[in-house]
Write a protein that binds this DNA or RNA. Structure first.
Length: 196
DNA sequence: ATGACGATGCACT
DNA sequence: GTGCATCGTCATG
């Protein structure tokens, strides 16, 4: 066991994260632990979005849906995907309209709860994709705009292995921008990273 | 009022 | 690998 990190240092690291340009923040977040209501795990896959990026929800400017992306950093932006799934981002960056999509977690907390919510038992399938992450954590639009550093959320730094980088998934615009990040070799990724 | 689209996941081949 | 469910959001009339 490692000595627990102080409350003050957590706040310091969070503040740094919240104010880092999203592609760098997305890489920094790998290995951090995210839970909601005591349920969650280690972040192993993220994607960065930025207002200058045609693939970003913030690209067209503020609307009712993306409003929280343009507010203060450190809050959760939740949107509905394909009419079915919820996906969550952490708003963070050097300027408004930047966020990091949480794509996959390695389950560490509340495995039983997640298995029931997801309807699957395999730990590798609990949070392997942004829609599944939200289903496992119980996150919906009801959490849109909530701070990630306050209940029911907990976000704490943690160690990570080598970081893999690649193109983002499921987008057609700016599909070549390498703003997908993950823990290399993790068994909990939504998809493997393309080899170099 | 209406239509096109999508930062997905799952069933199926 | 392909097909598709399903609906909020936004652009248009």
């Amino acid at each position: 066991m490692v000595a627990p990190i102080s409350r003050r240092e957590v706040a310091q690291r969070q503040d740094e994260l919240f104010h880092t340009h999203s592609p760098k923040a997305a890489a920094m977040m790998i290995g951090w632990t995210l839970t909601c209501g005591g349920v969650g795990g280690r972040i192993v896959e993220t994607e960065a979005y930025d207002p200058s990026d045609p693939a970003s929800h913030s690209f067209p400017g503020p609307t009712a849906r993306n409003a929280v992306m343009f507010g203060p950093p450190g809050v959760i932006y939740v949107y509905r995907s394909y009419g079915i799934h919820w996906c969550m981002n952490l708003v963070c960056g050097e300027h408004p309209g930047s966020a990091v999509l949480i794509r996959a977690l390695e389950p560490t907390h509340g495995l039983d709860v997640m298995a029931e919510r997801r309807g699957v038992a395999d730990p590798r399938r609990l949070m392997n994709g942004p829609g599944n992450v939200c289903q496992a954590l119980g996150v919906t639009v009801a959490q849109n705009g909530m701070r990630v550093d306050e209940a029911p959320f907990v976000l704490e730094p943690g160690p990570a292995g080598a970081i893999a980088v690649g193109p983002r998934i499921g987008i057609t615009k700016a599909a070549d921008v390498p703003w997908r990040f993950g823990e290399a070799g993790s068994r909990f990724l939504s998809k493997p990273f393309p080899k170099l």
